[in-house]
Amino acid sequence: MPGSESREKLGVKDAWKYLNERFGIRKEDIESYKIIKKSGDFWLTSNHSEPDLEYETVGIRFLRDTGKYIKPTTYGLQILGGKIESAIIEVSKKELITLLDGDMIERELGIEKGYVAIEYEGDVVGCGLYKDELVSSRISTGRADELKNLL
């Protein structure tokens, strides 16, 4: 799976590389942002130095380092939105409900297994996992329940 290098070696450069190779994001697409690593995860924030304060969070957590691989967050993929050029699947309402119910949908994407952006009605709504020509949702349970109630 892309981004499955060992944990110790994962740095900000690996995060950029993953975004580019998996989702086709170019650095210039998000040049007003910077990526920092904090508490083991990657955060997207504005391109500005931090004053010396004790922070609870800096920007938005958008890539998690699970130890085995890099996993994008639903919020992170929503921000990247229209800039995502690959590993993106468009789903119908019925398919989205299936995913949010915890079931899988079939898709032949012709890409390596790994995380994908789920798009519904032109908007990226969150993160999914593509494996063995099946897609499952990785949208957090709470957010998935909220979304299901709106469909």
Binding site: Y33, L44, T45, S46, H48, E50, L53, E54, Y55, E56, T57, V58, G59, I60, Y75, Q78, I79
Partner: peptide, 18 residues
């Protein structure tokens, strides 16, 4: 505060608790 920052994509916000 975090939930609203995340939902709105307010990446410029750094949260402190002073």
């Amino acid at each position: 505060l975090h939930a609203n920052i995340y939902r709105t994509g307010s990446t410029v916000a750094r949260v402190t608790n002073y």
